[in-house]
Amino acid sequence: MTAAFLYGAAGLLLFALGLWSLLVHEPLLRKLIAFNIMGSGVFHLFIAVAHRSDGSSPDPVPHALVLTGIVVAVSATALALALNSRLEEADAKASSSKTTPSGAPEPNTTARTGLPKPSSNGANRLRWPSR
């Protein structure tokens, strides 16, 4: 009972810590770390509830749920990172085309990515502050 409560409460604290960081910090990488810590808190709560302090074998159903959850969390992280890298690419291209003197071609991979060239207006909207 005490052990289950201790571990479950730690999971809830992890969830709250991740939620706070997700709301407060702006860079996407920090938001992703916060999101993963939130998820870990939920998984930790599941594992704590499955645990039996009397020494009998723990409940296998939450374990299986957490296993699938871990894989889904990582695939969501991978997708978010890929989206972020495209955003940063478009951002860098927009800022470099704005600041370089006219006509100087940037050694970027403009042709390969095939992204539509963002207008300066759209680039500002998409801009993700890096600090």
Binding site: P60, V61, H63, A64, L65, L67, T68, V71, V72, S75, A76, A78, L79, A82, L83, R86, R112, T113, G114, L115
Partner: peptide, 28 residues
């Protein structure tokens, strides 16, 4: 639990994984 009782879950989880990789590939 994973492969028998709740096999639906695992099937859908594999589908989520497939959707994520399709999303990554579609970004260029």
């Amino acid at each position: 639990v994973l492969l028998n009782y709740r096999a639906y879950d695992t099937l859908l989880e594999l589908a989520v994984l497939l959707a994520a990789i399709l999303g990554i590939w579609s970004l260029g």
